[in-house]
Nucleic acid binder design. Structure first.
Length: 154
DNA sequence: GCCAACGTTGGC
DNA sequence: GCCAACGTTGGC
């Protein structure tokens, strides 16, 4: 099993939305590195830190699990969709999505500044300045440490 | 709203 | 293949 961090703007889709829906389609990823992680490495049952970006404060808000492995993101072909990619050839899926299921909402957001201040999380990608990747691998130790910070056993 | 950091594009 | 210009991300 692998561990991930996935970013969402809570104004667009928050951990509360995921709790309400039970699961969601994680579409709109338009970055090759993030896509490759989804395509090559994500497996059903992998666990995900659900991260609120562009939030006050930004930080980890919940836990989710991968519910379905990567499949074509057909929003790329929909001109009316926000994530439309006019350069994406019909019939050649370039972008992928996965399905993500709700696991838990953290009792409180583990804020980015708390992540950065924790030496046990040295090297965690999200704590690095300028790190914009919306789908990031997380080590098992870092994943467990974030849950511990949230007051959860894991 | 600002702007630094980053990924992508396109001229050469 | 270099790199300047551009658009986007995301913390602040």
């Amino acid at each position: 099993m692998r561990y991930w961090l996935m970013k969402s703007e809570p104004d667009v889709y928050s951990i509360d939305d995921l709790a309400r829906d039970g699961s969601t389609i994680w579409e709109g990823v338009r970055n090759y590195q993030a896509r490759n992680f989804m395509r090559d490495d994500m497996q059903v049952g992998d666990r995900v830190l659900f991260y609120h970006s562009n939030a006050a404060p930004p930080g980890v808000a919940g836990v989710a699990t991968i519910h379905r492995t990567a499949y074509p993101d057909d929003t790329a072909w929909d001109p009316k969709n926000h994530y439309f990619d006019e350069t994406c050839p019909p019939g050649e899926p370039r972008w992928l999505r996965v399905d993500v299921a709700f696991e838990a909402k953290l009792p409180a957001v583990v804020a980015l500044d708390a992540l950065k201040a924790n030496p046990a999380l040295d090297g965690m990608l999200v704590t690095k300045r300028g790190q914009r990747l919306s789908v990031q691998p997380v080590s098992e130790a870092h994943f467990a440490e974030v849950l511990r910070m949230a007051g959860l056993a894991g």
